[in-house]
Design a protein around this nucleic acid. Structure first.
Length: 412
RNA sequence: CGGGGCGUGGCGCAGUCUGGUAGCGCACUUGACUGGGGGUCAAGUGGUCGCUGGUUCAAAUCCAGCCGUCCCGACCA
């Protein structure tokens, strides 16, 4: 991709109403634009990151044996009346009337819809267990949206719902999801902790949260270094660290939450299957969420410096940024840079080239702001010595490589 | 929903107290110079000052209502 015709505009100043560093950087680096409170457009550069995260999650979910579906964003109120959640959720629901004055909401979560699907399609225990997931836009009319996409009203979420004949099967899948989540957050190169949590509105009993560790996190979590114990501080009043371990505290951003729901929804919505004895039973249910769009902000909270974003390789919008320090009157530098660019591109590497007619300072500043992990500097100075310079945005490490070996060296 | 801010070109701000018809920096356009860490000079583009009503000869400025938005609290991926 050539930056000269990429619709990306960076800013020196963030809007004054952006308080959180990740929010400021996302606006300054042109990842998002605010449309209304808690409602954002993902611009091309930001969308690339969002898609990377989405794809990582999708891959791991598929590997876990779950099946991807896409449910409607709009849900009829009647379904929510069945579980009494229309009332329980209250103003959190964005209500919509259709032309016949039938009442709907923009879905904040999908337990009712998936349970409805199951009761219409699953009759036998032989069809269980099953786990359906989707990656989809949700809307929760939060009392107070804040911190940009961190707590937006409209946001992208991966939500999964599993159904089981009995508690044992549910626990098995719960552990499967636990492992899958560990794997997802590792793949995303995030520093995270799994903690015990309380279940909130969703209901059910057992639940665990996955937190990205960051000082700006909205939750306080406690844990022991031996990893035998970790909990959201909310749950902690009556608990001490087990086996005398030292309890440590940190702030976390909740990016995932897994629940064992039991038969709450299958009972209230009359989802029944025949077991092997020909008896009707209400399946047990689990649900598993990941805040995809929130992860973008969380990743930045965890990976930035005073100059800008530092993307983990796994979610960086591009792998390599070529910074061309060209001379208006001498196209040889640009030509050389474009040659390397084309070679990398044809090797399937996601490379962005800053071929704009800008001064070096502007390009370096933008490069650091945008946070692409590998910066390749192609300038007259290096060309004369037959080298290009490679700088890691992550470690700051610099090294020179021969032009003739550029493409092959940069591939790894 | 309670408490507190703030709304003036795309962004950051001044002007509001003490009414006289809008200004600065960045960005943007054009030209010249410059060319390895946000460069310089020159000439430009862009704003019914959140909205509505009121007071006044005159309102960004005073008054009222409304809307938007942000921060602090309870909810959430």
């Amino acid at each position: 991709m050539k930056l000269s015709n990429y619709p990306l505009k960076t800013f020196k100043d963030a809007p004054s109403d952006a308080e959180l560093i990740s929010h400021q950087l996302m606006l300054r680096a042109g990842l998002i634009k605010k449309l209304a409170s808690g409602i954002f457009t993902w611009m091309p550069f930001g969308l690339k990151v969002l898609r990377k995260i989405e794809q990582t999650v999708r891959k791991e979910m598929d590997a876990s044996g779950a099946f991807e579906v896409m449910m409607p964003t709009i849900q009829p109120s009647e379904l929510w009346q069945e579980t009494n959640r229309w009332e329980d959720y209250g103003d959190l629901l964005l209500q919509i009337h259709d032309r016949h004055d039938r009442l709907f909401c923009y879905g904040p979560t999908h337990e009712e819809v998936i349970t409805d699907i199951l009761r219409k399609s699953v009759k036998s225990y032989k069809q269980l267990p099953v786990n359906f997931y989707q990656i989809q836009t949700k809307f929760r009319d939060e009392i107070r949206p804040r911190f940009g996409v961190m707590r937006a009203r409209e946001f992208l979420m991966k939500d999964a719902y599993s159904f089981h004949l009995n508690q044992e099967s549910l626990e098995e899948e719960y552990e499967n999801m636990n492992q899958t989540y560990q794997s997802i957050f590792k793949k995303l190169e995030l520093n995270f902790r799994r903690v015990e949590a309380i279940s909130g509105e969703i209901g059910g009993s057992v639940s665990h949260e996955f937190h990205v560790i960051a000082d700006s996190g909205e939750d306080e979590i406690a844990f022991c270094d031996d990893e035998n114990f970790a909990a959201n501080i909310e749950t902690l009043e009556d608990k001490n660290a087990p086996n005398g371990g030292e309890l440590k505290y940190a702030r976390g951003i909740e990016v995932g939450h897994i629940f064992q729901l039991g038969d709450k929804y299958s009972k209230s919505m009359k989802l029944e299957v025949l077991d092997s004895n020909g008896k009707n039973v209400n399946p047990y249910m689990g649900c598993y969420g990941i805040g995809i769009s929130r992860i973008v902000a969380a990743a930045i909270e965890q990976n930035h410096d005073e100059k800008g974003i530092i993307w983990p390789k796994a979610i960086s919008p591009f792998e390599i940024l070529i910074i061309v320090l060209n001379d208006k009157n001498d196209s040889s530098v640009l030509d050389q840079a474009l040659k390397i660019y084309k070679e990398l591109k044809s090797d399937g590497i996601e490379v962005l080239i800053d071929d704009r007619d800008e001064r070096a300072g502007v390009k370096f500043a933008d490069a650091d702001l945008l946070g692409i992990p590998k910066q390749v500097i192609v300038g007259k100075r290096g060309i004369e010595k037959n080298i290009i310079e490679v700088t890691s945005r992550i470690t700051g490490e610099k090294r020179d490589i021969k032009i003739s070996e550029a493409a092959s060296q940069l591939k790894d």
